[in-house]
Design a protein around this nucleic acid. Structure first.
Lengths: 138, 138
DNA sequence: CTGGATCCGCGCGGATACTG
DNA sequence: CAGTATCCGCGCGGATCCAG
């Protein structure tokens, strides 16, 4: 992501040009298949690797491991190793991760409350498309 | 209905399996490189195609078009064509899209407020990794 | 101006096998 | 149990050309 000068500038703008960079960076980091789901599961409390895997769903070991590593890198989760046999590794949200959970939860709550509206919109859309095809020119 | 409880359950049994489906579906739809950015730009007001393109940044026509089509499909944006020459197409958030803007903005605001904390966490992480590599086994 | 059509590289993410 | 290593298909997303 090379820093191209002037990609977002506009005369007489609202002035959050530099802040757009922060937003884009965050979105780039959470816009993958699993991050938000993992964060949300960890929001219920600390969890070990395989337990986490079961909670999240159909995630592969590879993706869970890499997702957790990036979350740890970003300071969202902590990784605590207990050197016993068999080894125990517990993941938990940090303070930063807990803070981040709030906006994530607001999206999750929105999804739950509005999924029916989205379904209705999709149905209306496909219906409208069908009508438009039925009237190619008038 | 009043404040719906239970979106966030206790560890042990969560029981919101069906709601997870809704959340996963929404995340799958917005977890791409551009959707949230486009939604956010449209949150400032209606916008035409090329103007939108300039506002968002270095997005290609193809991705902007497909992103807008999916947003329209999900009922987040409306597409209004004015048949003149040259043709005008204006995109705007629907009511659903405007509602969705709220959680999106909460994420954007979080990104702005906490980007420095994330940077610090990343710096601390790479430093910790360097120390661990300096002590491979002891 | 607003896109659709096509080609293509690259990286995400799944499957499997292996290690400590 | 908690990962790493490797292979690989597929689809995202960019570039370019073309059309209404």
């Amino acid at each position: 992501m090379a820093k191209q000068e002037g990609t977002l500038r506009k005369p007489g703008n609202h002035g959050d040009t530099s802040q757009c960079e922060h937003i884009s960076r965050l979105i780039a980091r959470i816009s993958d298949k699993w991050t938000l789901l993992v964060v949300r599961v960890l929001g219920r409390g600390p969890c070990r690797f395989n337990a986490l895997r079961r909670e999240v769903g159909e995630i592969s070991q590879k993706m869970l491991a890499s997702t957790l590593r990036e979350l740890e890198e970003n300071g969202f989760v902590s990784r605590t190793v207990t050197p016993v046999t068999p080894p125990q590794v517990e993941y938990a949200l940090t303070q930063l991760g807990t803070d981040f959970l709030k906006p994530v939860q607001s999206i999750a709550d929105w999804a739950i409350r509005n999924s029916s509206r989205m379904d209705a919109a999709r149905a209306a859309y496909s219906k409208r498309r069908a009508n438009e095809r039925a009237i190619p020119s008038r």
